[in-house]
Simulated assay, not measured.
Amino acid sequence: MSEQTIPAYKRWFEETGEQVSFFTAFFRNVFRGGFEWSEFVRQCYEIGYKSITLVGVTSFIMGVVLTLQSRPTLVKFGASSMLPLMVCVSIVREIGPVITAIICAGKLSSGIGAELGSMKVTEQIDAMDVSGANPMQYLVVTRILATTFMIPLLTMMGDVIALFGGFLAVNLADSTSWTLYFNKCINSITFVDLLPAFIKTIFFGFAVGFVGCYKGYNSNSGTESVGKAANSAVVNASLWIFFLDVLAVQITQLLFY
């Protein structure tokens, strides 16, 4: 029976089972001896350092646009002094983590999926397996842990840059000192804002790495599957980010409010 004739619900169950198997294989190899620290550090450099420019530019523009769009409404209600507070809470709680994760899904998931997909279809992964190496530990574990570790750091950096962009945008119409602006920002942030936002970025990072590795590692229909793996990785990682964000909001509401 060809893939086209298999009912959609059966394909969904089959893929879900494959993802669960891939997930368990990942965790088995995390705790197995011989962890590839050098490859992990290299992946942190490739994933984190080489994404700083994209995340920084996007975050800066995001802070400027959010401030400029919000200011007229607050001025109408005589609440322009609340602008730093509103921008800071919006960025730290929601916009910063989600936008950064979506950017990383587009850049990293597609890259990981294409890289592992090309290695799969050219039988490089099979060659590693035959030679006694552990491709799951060397290729998959290091990439997933690197995205899990680096995306929260990129998010924190992006939040700071976005707030700096907001400061510049505020001063386009008003004259607000650096000290006053950031004092208002810092005073508006609480533990309830910071902790859930940081924790969900860890899950965002895991989802970005896991989906990219799964799609690439399971490419098996020729060179055409490399492009499909990259495209599917971006779509699925983005959907997982939105799903995890909704789940995080609901859990935060239950625990802290």
Results as ranks from 00 to 15, higher is better:
176 T>A: 15
126 D>F: 10
12 W>L: 14
99 I>H: 00
123 E>M: 03
169 A>D: 00
183 N>H: 15
81 S>F: 13
95 I>G: 03
253 Q>I: 12
68 L>Y: 08
70 S>Q: 05
111 G>I: 05
141 V>S: 07
5 T>E: 05
255 L>T: 09
65 V>P: 03
170 V>A: 08
46 E>D: 03
195 L>I: 15
136 M>F: 11
197 A>S: 12
104 C>V: 05
163 L>V: 05
99 I>L: 08
92 V>T: 12
23 F>D: 00
67 T>V: 04
30 V>T: 08
256 F>G: 07
127 A>V: 02
42 R>L: 07
126 D>H: 11
188 S>E: 10
183 N>Y: 15
102 I>D: 01
138 Y>D: 13
249 V>S: 15
240 W>C: 12
83 L>Y: 02
69 Q>S: 00
157 M>G: 15
240 W>L: 13
41 V>H: 14
35 F>C: 03
238 S>G: 05
32 R>D: 08
179 T>W: 13
98 V>L: 00
33 G>H: 12
89 V>C: 10
134 N>W: 04
40 F>G: 01
41 V>F: 15
40 F>L: 11
214 Y>Q: 13
3 E>F: 04
206 F>C: 01
230 A>W: 04
101 A>V: 09
58 T>I: 08
28 R>S: 08
106 G>N: 04
230 A>T: 05
243 F>H: 02
5 T>Q: 06
39 E>C: 09
250 Q>M: 11
236 N>T: 15
41 V>K: 15
181 Y>I: 09
203 F>H: 01
194 L>Y: 00
247 L>H: 06
133 A>S: 13
24 T>A: 10
175 S>K: 14
197 A>Q: 01
97 P>Y: 09
113 G>H: 00
159 D>F: 13
14 E>V: 11
115 E>L: 09
151 I>V: 10
75 V>F: 05
162 A>E: 07
69 Q>H: 07
178 W>K: 14
205 G>M: 06
24 T>V: 14
61 I>E: 01
128 M>F: 01
158 G>D: 09
195 L>Y: 05
50 K>L: 11
175 S>D: 14
